[in-house]
């Protein structure tokens, strides 16, 4: 007897429908989107999900996931999601954003969505730069990090300090779950799925806002090989943006 143990998730758009990833080698998006698709299948909510396509490398959501998709202008994904969820409370509503989107131009929206306790889930990919536009510094860029707009490294006296999104979102009373994970080694990728699953569950149970920040490699703009990018996450980025669960109202005692 043969048992199928690994297959393409139904929620990923099939190639014959125009699906397929268009990311750079070593980019973290593919793993994260596949993980989201697996979970949508496991919860059997593909046909009840509306995803928001944000500005950035995530913008072509409708080519990656086989879902109803609404587009949002830069930073406004959680507003569009709020409008949808308030009108369609039975739909599962997901925003998929980068650090440039959710933590920089749209951080005001992120915080207010969390404070309102909207029953939506945000997956924020943090690669510490504006990937789509060619690697400029974002709010989460680390001190000393070289980007196209900080060619001598980010200096606190010039551009301030990196923003720690998951920790700040955790402070909002409407947040049910906030955590930071990483796409680096197998252990972390397994933790990624468990974490996103938890963020999905708090929406499905109507508990509040779910926020998962995912540290992901951007080898092209970091000028690294995919392997070096993984090492960069493990050895450098994690020391600035530490992994952890910062709020989980389903646990009696959270960090």
């Amino acid at each position: 007897m043969e048992t199928l143990v690994y297959k393409r998730p139904e929620s990923l758009l099939k190639a014959e429908k125009g699906g397929g990833f268009t990311f750079c080698p070593g980019c973290g998006h593919g793993v994260i989107l596949r993980t989201i698709a697996e979970l949508l299948d496991e919860f059997n909510i593909q046909k009840d999900t509306i995803a928001i396509a944000s500005v950035g490398c995530s913008v072509f959501m409708e080519r990656f996931l086989d879902l109803d998709v609404a587009g949002a202008s830069h930073g406004r994904s959680t507003c569009v999601a709020t409008g949808i969820k308030r009108c369609k409370p039975n739909n599962f509503v997901l925003t998929y954003q980068g650090d440039g989107d959710a933590a920089t131009i749209g951080f005001n929206e992120t915080i207010h969505t969390a404070c309102r306790g909207e029953h939506i889930t945000t997956i924020m990919i943090n690669n510490t730069n504006f990937g789509m536009t060619g690697g400029q510094a974002s709010a989460t860029t680390m001190l000393g990090q070289v980007t196209t707009t900080t060619p001598y490294g980010r200096k606190a006296e010039e551009t301030g300090y990196p923003l720690h999104a998951a920790e700040i979102v955790a402070q909002c009373e409407g947040t049910a779950y906030s955590a930071r994970v990483a796409v680096s080694d197998t252990k972390n990728i397994r933790a990624l799925k468990k974490t996103i699953k938890k963020a999905f569950e708090v929406q499905l149970k109507g508990l509040g806002y779910g926020f998962v920040e995912v540290l992901a490699g951007c080898p092209t703009n970091w000028h690294m090989t995919p392997t070096e990018a993984v090492e960069q996450i493990e050895n450098v980025i994690k020391t600035v943006h530490p992994l952890g669960v910062f709020k989980d109202i389903t646990e009696k005692e959270s960090v």
Binding site: I50, A72, C79, G83, C87, N108, E109, H112
Partner: peptide, 16 residues
């Protein structure tokens, strides 16, 4: 939180 937010919420509602 702002007029930016309110019109984008209108967009979300409008898409449904």
């Amino acid at each position: 939180e702002s007029e930016l937010a309110s019109i984008n919420m209108v967009i979300g509602a409008g898409t449904t």
